[in-house]
Design a protein around this nucleic acid. Structure first.
Length: 363
DNA sequence: GTATGCTTTCGGC
DNA sequence: TTACGGCCGAAAGCATAC
């Protein structure tokens, strides 16, 4: 099953301060540039009825909520992380296997516990929902299915406070009318390609000849699409390791092309990233940068190093090179910048031994 | 041709 | 110079290798 907390940040705020319940609640990321500069992170369903959405500029949300007695709050990630940890502890206790996805979502494998009985599973989900409600005052939307693919789509069907169970014999009918874009792996381009083949729904995709799919999308992708359309998925529910990337991004006080100002901020971001990298004992092989220009266009550059490293100075030097290159290749002023590291390897004992071997061999 | 890896952009929350 | 976040993983495009 998949459990997904409803409008998580805004709901956490409602729990912390119940007096705002019943009002539109908008959680915002303020950039600090001017009074209302920034964007909406998430909003409760009351605010959504007014047309407020994630990613929307704060001033637009305020306009939509004029005279609506709305509450605008700054994001408090530390508080949401603590709340999330409590939720995940409860969820983990009810699962044979567990996989957290992001801050507000988790897959629970429960086949052993329930013997694969979907009625029992439904009762179990209801108990989990009740427990989250009584202990943490939080609602969630849950989806139950024979695998992760179906559980996820089921959970998205009914929100907020939903509970959708798709039994194996219901899978075919459940999927048939859905647009192909509901499948993970089908983005805008793939959707267009499928449309050109006369495929619009998952049902149509299921009936389409596998060999033709493979001819168009390649062996792995074609086979994946075919199976997914049939509701087949054998991805295990398993604990996730470290994140695949760690990044920091920040809005500059004013737009600029002054490389010393940009690099000063970039170095700050590198310091923060490096602290996290060291904390988690990671080594990174790829360093990337992002620049959002005055016109909000996005530009990225990245470099994959010869070996995985953890040195702050290498991160800063690589970021510097990438920003300098990017500034040459565009003429717009820069509004926001970010740094990202990825391609991690956990630092192994063997690497340290190797290093000390070389060190000692030179002495 | 297909698989794989790297780079850049997109999109959800 | 006065109207837009921060972070993540997925998607897509391209280069290279077999």
């Amino acid at each position: 099953m998949l459990v997904d907390l409803d409008y998580f940040f805004a709901q956490a705020e409602e729990v912390r301060n119940p007096t705002i319940q019943g009002k539109p609640v908008v959680v915002c990321v303020y950039s600090g540039r001017s009074e209302d500069s920034g964007a909406v992170s998430t909003a409760n369903y009351i605010a959504r009825k007014y047309g407020v959405k994630s990613g929307m500029p704060i001033f637009q949300a305020k306009k939509k909520l004029e005279n609506a007695d709305a509450v605008f709050l700054p994001v408090d990630y530390t508080f949401y992380e603590k709340t999330s940890a409590k939720v995940m502890n409860i969820l983990r206790n009810h699962a044979d296997s567990f996989e957290q996805v992001g801050i507000d979502e988790a897959y629970l494998g429960v086949s052993q516990k329930t013997g694969g009985d979907f009625e029992k599973t439904k009762d179990l989900v209801q108990r989990i929902k009740d427990e989250l409600k009584t202990q943490l005052k939080l609602t969630c939307s849950a989806g139950v299915g024979p695998n992760k693919l179906i559980a996820k789509i089921a959970a998205d069907t009914q929100k907020p406070d939903g509970l959708t169970v798709i039994k194996p014999e219901q899978v075919e009918a459940f999927l048939a009318s859905l647009p192909v874009s509901r499948l993970i792996g089908v983005g805008a381009k793939t959707k267009e390609k499928m449309q050109a083949l006369g495929i619009n729904t998952v049902g149509e995709l299921a009936k389409y000849d596998v060999q033709k799919l493979i001819a168009v999308f390649g062996k792995a992708l074609g086979a994946y699409f075919h199976n997914a359309a049939l509701g087949l998925d054998d991805e295990p529910v398993q604990e996730r390791g470290e994140a695949e990337s760690i990044s920091r991004i920040s809005t500059l006080k004013q737009n600029t092309r002054d490389s010393s100002l940009i690099l000063e901020k970039a170095n700050q971001l590198c310091d923060e990233i490096h602290a996290t990298v060291m904390q988690q004992r990671l080594a990174f092989k790829t360093v990337g940068i992002i620049a959002i220009m005055a016109d909000l266009s996005m530009h990225t550059r990245s470099k994959t190093l010869e070996n995985a490293v953890n040195e702050l100075e290498i991160m800063k030097k690589t970021a510097k090179e990438l920003f300098e290159k990017l500034l040459i290749e565009t003429e717009l002023e820069v509004r926001r910048i970010g740094v990202k590291v990825s391609n991690f390897t956990k630092e192994q004992e063997s690497q340290k031994q190797l290093t000390s071997f070389f060190d000692s061999s030179h002495t």
